[in-house]
């Protein structure tokens, strides 16, 4: 990872084509969810050392948001999925 990333649409591309947003695990709550749930969604992070899911945006490529599953200690990448697919289970 982080030197080369395999975009499911564009193939293996260098890191500098992507912008990275952060943790892809928290899910946006329902509007009516509690303030605690919203606070947790916007602000709190598990931030584990090891396997994580992270949002990457292929800005200089297909402009799709991707979910990159990787290890943040070894920088090994396990999988890269289109975010829509990750959210809905359907291919984008």
């Amino acid at each position: 990872m982080a030197s080369l990333i395999t975009c499911p649409h564009c193939g293996r591309r260098p890191k500098e084509e992507f912008s990275i947003r952060g943790d892809a695990v928290p899910e946006r709550p329902e509007a009516a969810a509690s303030e605690e749930a919203w606070h947790a969604y916007v602000y709190l992070r598990e931030n584990p050392r090891g396997a994580i899911r992270e949002y990457w945006h292929h800005v200089a490529g297909c402009r799709r948001w991707l979910v990159v599953e990787r290890d943040n200690l070894t920088h090994e990448v396990f999988a890269v999925t289109d975010a829509r697919e990750a959210a809905t289970g359907d291919a984008a």
């Binding site: 912008s19 946006r28 949002y55 402009r63 799709r64 948001w65 975010a83 829509r84 959210a87």
Partner: peptide
């Protein structure tokens, strides 16, 4: 301009892919 574009794409692709 770039931030808003990325923001809209994020909202569309991850919050409301439907």
């Amino acid at each position: 301009a770039a931030e808003v574009m990325a923001h809209l794409e994020f909202a569309s692709q991850t919050f409301w892919p439907d």
